[in-house]
Amino acid sequence: MTTPEPTNVPVKIRTVVTERAPSDISGLENETIDAALPGRTGSRVEIRDLSAFYGSHLAVTGVNLIVEPTEVTALIGPSGCGKSTVLRCVNGMHLNTPTGRVQGQVLIDDINILGKGVDPVLVRRNVGMVFQRPNPFPTMSIYDNVVAGLRLGRRGRRTSEYDDIVEVSLTRAGLWPEVKDRLKAAGSSLSGGQQQRLCIARALAVEPRVLLMDEPCSALDPISTLVIEDLIAELKASYTIIIVTHNMQQAARVSDTTAFLTVPGLGQAGALVEIGPTSRIFSNPNEKATEDYITGKVG
């Protein structure tokens, strides 16, 4: 409890944005683009004593976890344990729900994004999110979906750069070969797995430091799931990734660290039970509750 009070400096977040030069898109001519961006890492995310409420109902409490840059952290746990709520606190989206309230801190590179005076718009420019169900903008083409964040967010990119950004983002999301000849087609004309990768490309186009994934594969078939899991493995070099998943095999496959949350009973508050390296959590958990869950005894 002696940690210094983090300063709320939204301006600092803004400078992070401008620091990133368009050099990210250099080397385009080489056809193959690594999903990773050389010399670029994600942000460190630290959650301190987080409690989230819906109105007066305490949904999840006492969450403490640290996500190091270039790591994938999986949040697992039974339905209703608050793992999605925790995820939605990391980009302030929880505060966007009508009765959403929080206590505690979420530090991104030592800036408390839940503090007063922090502009959620600036936070979300650095913390991207991929949702459970693919949600491309139905009125927009594939191309426009990818640049939507830049165009609507007034991110100061010249439209002449958009073509390159679209190609890089779609390539990173592993979708470019499938759609490069029909960028003007409706985003909703793609298959479910393609739509989800389009949504990932859309999130990557604004170049966040942190990528939140809320059960990104739960609406997808096994092959699309595999494609996205491979993608996560490549993206983690450049982005801090936090993924919520119901699929424990998926957590074991993609994550470096696993956090297990549970909820004692209906209507009660969820809580973090255990966090540790994925290999240990799945082979030798400290807590009985974790072991019961991952071996399928409960949940």
């Binding site: 966007n96 936070v123 979300r124 949600n135 964040g149 609507l152 991110r155 999130a203």
Partner: peptide, 8 residues
């Protein structure tokens, strides 16, 4: 939410 999450 998708739009807000993009920093719009």
């Amino acid at each position: 939410e998708a739009s807000l999450a993009l920093g719009v």
